[in-house]
C-alpha cells in the first residue's frame, strides 16, 4: 500500500496513471517560473509547484494536473494557474476521456495577490467551459494541505470529488477561521475538530465528495477510473436548480447544528463519535443509505 497523502505531486502522477504513459507539458527544464517570487527575493520552483500533462488512465486518454503541496502549500500563482487553465483549455481541443486534478492547495498564493486571484477565476471558468462541452473533470483530494480557498471552489465545480479521510475540503481553512473569528469559534489545533468538520468522511456524508477511499494510491486510481466511467457532465438549468434545492434543504435540516457530530446523529448514526475511528471500507458500508 503506497500512501497518497505522503507522496509528492510527481509521485502521485506516476502512481495514478497507467505505467509509463505520462508526458509532461512545460516540464521543469523549461524553467517557466514565477516572475513575482524572484522579484520578492523568494525561492521559486522550476515547475511553479504544478505538474501538468497527458497520459492514460485505465487505458483511456486523459489530461492530468498535480499540485505540489510542499511548495508554498500548493498555492496558485500566476504561472501555476496559467498551466492549469491551459491544460483545461487544451482538453477543449483534444477531447480526452476526462481531466484529472490531483489538488493539494491552500488557494491563492498571496505573494502574487491579484494575479493569483485572476488565475483562480480563470481556472473556474475553464472547468465549467469544459464540463459544458461534455468533458468530465474529476478532482482527487488526499494531500497534506487539503483543498481550500479558490481551489475549494474549483473542487465543487467538478463532476466528482474523490477524497480520503485525510483529505480536507473547504473555503476558509481552519487557521484562517481561527485568525479571523477567534479560537473560541474554531480551534485549528484541535485535529479531531478539524477533520470532522472539513475532512473526507464529513464531506462524503454531506454528498460533497462522491467517493471516499483509503489513503492508498491504488484505491485513488481505482476510484478515478470508476468516476471517469460514470461521469456525465450536466450543467443544465434543471440540474443547477436541483443542486440549489438540495443546498436549501440542507441548511433547513442542519442549520441549527453546532458540530458535525450533531449532523451525523441526525443522519441516523447511533454512535457518531465512533465514525472517525473507522477504516474507509467499514465507514462506507456503515454510511450506505444514510448520506445527506
Amino acid at each position: 500500500m503506497t500512501s497518497y497523502y505522503e507522496a509528492s505531486a510527481r509521485e502521485r502522477v506516476a502512481g495514478l496513471l497507467d505505467a509509463g504513459s505520462f508526458i509532461e507539458i512545460l516540464p521543469p527544464q523549461e524553467r517557466v517560473m514565477s516572475p513575482h517570487l524572484l522579484q520578492l527575493d523568494t525561492p521559486a520552483a522550476f515547475d511553479d509547484g504544478i505538474v501538468v500533462g497527458e497520459g492514460r488512465l485505465g487505458g483511456r486518454p486523459i489530461l492530468v494536473a498535480a499540485q505540489e503541496g510542499g511548495f508554498m502549500g500548493g498555492a496558485v500563482g500566476e504561472v501555476h494557474g496559467a498551466k492549469l487553465t491551459g491544460l483545461l483549455e487544451r482538453a477543449l481541443d483534444t477531447r480526452p476521456a476526462g481531466v484529472i486534478l490531483l489538488v493539494e492547495s491552500g488557494g491563492v498564493r498571496l505573494h502574487e495577490a491579484n494575479a493569483g486571484l485572476i488565475a483562480v477565476s480563470e481556472i473556474m471558468r475553464a472547468v465549467l467551459a469544459l464540463r459544458g462541452a461534455g468533458v468530465p473533470v474529476i478532482l482527487l483530494d488526499g494531500g497534506q494541505f487539503g483543498c481550500f480557498g479558490g481551489m475549494g471552489i474549483v473542487a465543487r465545480l467538478c463532476d466528482a470529488v474523490i477524497m480520503s479521510e485525510e483529505g480536507r475540503l473547504g473555503l476558509s481553512g481552519p487557521e484562517v477561521i481561527e485568525t479571523t473569528c477567534g479560537v473560541e469559534e474554531f480551534d485549528s489545533r484541535d485535529r479531531a475538530l478539524v477533520w470532522r468538520t472539513v475532512g473526507g468522511k464529513h464531506r462524503y456524508l454531506l454528498g460533497e465528495a462522491a467517493e471516499i477511499v483509503a489513503d492508498d494510491m491504488a484505491a485513488f486510481r481505482a476510484a478515478a477510473i470508476a468516476a471517469l466511467e460514470h461521469a456525465r457532465p450536466d450543467l443544465s438549468l434543471a440540474a443547477l436548480e436541483a443542486e440549489h434545492a438540495g443546498l436549501g434543504a440542507r441548511i433547513t435540516r442542519f442549520g441549527a447544528c453546532r458540530d458535525a457530530l450533531d449532523i451525523w446523529r441526525d443522519l441516523g448514526f447511533e454512535a457518531p463519535d465512533r465514525l472517525p475511528l473507522l477504516e474507509a471500507d467499514a465507514f462506507r458500508a456503515l454510511a450506505a443509505g444514510r448520506r445527506a
Binding site: 510527481r10 521543469p28 527544464q29 521559486a44 520552483a45 522550476f46 509547484g49 510542499g70 511548495f71
Partner: peptide, 18 residues
Amino acid sequence: KATLAGVVGSGNLEVLVE
C-alpha cells in the same frame, strides 16, 4: 532525460539534472 528530485520547501531543495 532531465530529472527533478526534491521540492522547494523549508529545509528542502529541488535538484534538476540535465
